[in-house]
């Protein structure tokens, strides 16, 4: 039987107060099963990022509960949430992913340093993941000198290197052309199948959607469709 690792129960997220209040998400209930490759789709402003941030323990719902591995995120302290993100989750953001003062390899190592790996282990793990993602050549280049596609791949490498359970990607292809997008999606699919890492990605690109095996559609903060892709 498939195991649910992430569950949202009647989750709402309201930004702001009274007059300026925005209902970004309304009464969302869903669960993510281990091994899935899920896309969250919908028009701009429908609440994709909001949903992803709630799932990724970056934000707290106004109402409702989020459970990871059976534990309620709402009952965890700030420090515990930080540790959870570090140890179980990987993130790839839309635009800003890499620390500009570090090289590609150092950006990847960053997570391992936070996790407390020894120097030797950091180096071997970093080399391994950069090689696997075809980034060996750019390993020692400053992050700012990489192309958009390379930056996103380094971001994926960094998200992967800590061997997370869940990988969140918020519009990872937003700044990429279609060739680069295709390569990125191939990579994500490969990670999903080969490493068994569950992936949740927000996108409004049908191309990305096509690679995933489940699509959740949002409209005005509500789930309007949740379907499996053949």
């Amino acid at each position: 039987m498939a195991t649910e690792i992430l569950t949202l129960t009647n989750v709402s997220r309201i930004y702001g107060k009274e007059a300026t209040k925005v209902l970004a998400l309304t009464d969302v209930s869903l669960s993510i099963t281990k091994g899935e490759f899920v896309s969250i789709v919908g028009p701009s402003g429908c609440g994709k990022s909001t949903l992803l941030n709630l799932m990724g323990a970056l934000d707290q719902p106004t109402r409702g509960a989020v459970h990871f591995d059976g534990n309620s995120l709402g009952e965890m302290s700030r420090g515990e949430l930080t540790d959870l993100r570090l140890q179980k989750f990987g993130f790839v953001f839309q635009a800003f992913n890499l620390l500009p003062v570090l090289t590609a390899a150092e950006n990847v190592q960053f997570v391992l340093q936070l996790l407390g790996f020894s120097r030797r282990e950091r180096q071997s793990k970093t080399t391994e993941v950069l090689d696997a993602l075809g980034l060996a050549d750019v390993a020692d280049r400053p992050a700012t000198e990489l192309s958009g596609g390379q930056q996103q791949r380094v971001a994926i490498a960094r998200a992967l290197v800590g061997e997370p359970v869940l990988l969140f990607a918020d519009e990872p292809s937003a700044n990429l052309d279609s060739t680069a997008t295709r390569e990125l999606c191939e990579l994500l699919r490969q990670i999903n199948t080969d490493r068994g890492i569950t992936i949740v990605t927000a996108t409004h690109d049908p191309l990305v959607m096509g690679y995933t095996n489940r699509s959740i559609s949002l409209e005005d903060g509500r789930v309007v469709e949740d379907k499996s892709n053949p």
């Binding site: 970056l58 930080t82 540790d83 993100r85 989750f89 992913n97 620390l99 997570v111 936070l114 960094r158």
Partner: peptide, 16 residues
């Protein structure tokens, strides 16, 4: 600001 935000999202503790 962005860099610090990124570090914190990735799980860098406040103390660090």
């Amino acid at each position: 600001t962005q860099e610090i935000g990124l570090c914190k999202s990735m799980g860098m503790k406040s103390s660090l």
